[in-house]
C-alpha cells in the first residue's frame, strides 16, 4: 500500500540531507562511477576502496536533489563490507527502502544511485 504522504520526504531522508554521510573523494579509489539525470541535472560520483574482496571505504560527491543525496548517503553505508558480487545484487528498491522509502516521483533517484554503483563496479573490473 502506498504511504499516506507520497509527496514529502520522511524523517530519515531529511536527516541524510541535513548531514549526508561520506562526502568526499578517495584519491586512490579502486572503483569510481558517475551518473547524471539529464532531466533535472543531478550529477553524482561514487568512490569505492576495496581490501581483498570487500569494500572498506566509500565516498560520494553530489550535485543533486534531496532524494539523490539521501540515496547516495545511505548507499555509502550499505556497501561497506560487501563484495563486488554482493554489490551487483543491490537493487534500486533496496536503496529506497534503506532511507525508509522515497515518494513515487523521486524513485528515479534510487535508480540513478544503483546505476552509479554499477558504473563503479564496471570501472573496477575494467582496471
Amino acid at each position: 500500500m502506498a504511504p499516506r504522504d507520497d509527496y514529502h520526504y520522511n524523517e530519515t531522508v531529511l536527516r541524510h540531507i541535513a548531514d549526508p554521510r561520506n562526502i568526499g573523494v578517495i584519491e586512490d579509489a579502486d572503483a569510481e562511477g558517475s551518473g547524471t539525470n539529464p532531466a533535472c541535472g543531478d550529477e553524482v560520483t561514487l568512490y569505492l576502496k576495496f581490501e581483498g574482496e570487500a569494500v572498506t571505504d566509500a565516498k560520494i560527491r553530489i550535485l543533486g536533489c534531496g532524494a539523490i543525496t539521501a540515496a547516495m548517503s545511505s548507499l555509502t553505508d550499505m556497501v561497506r563490507g560487501k563484495t563486488a558480487e554482493e554489490l551487483g545484487e543491490i537493487t534500486a528498491e533496496e536503496i529506497a527502502e534503506s532511507v525508509g522509502g522515497l515518494p513515487t516521483h523521486k524513485r528515479h533517484c534510487a535508480t540513478l544511485a544503483r546505476r552509479v554503483l554499477q558504473n563503479a563496479l564496471k570501472s573496477r573490473s575494467a582496471s
Binding site: 509527496y7 531529511l14 541535513a18 532531466a39 533535472c40 543531478d42 536533489c65 515518494p103 533517484c109
Partner: peptide, 20 residues
C-alpha cells in the same frame, strides 16, 4: 527548512515533476 526558514524552489525534482 531544518533551520526553520521556509522558502521554495521552482527547480528540478521539486514539485512532483522530474522536469525543471
Amino acid at each position: 527548512d531544518l533551520e526553520g526558514i521556509a522558502v521554495s524552489t521552482g527547480a528540478a525534482c521539486s514539485s512532483g515533476s522530474p522536469e525543471p
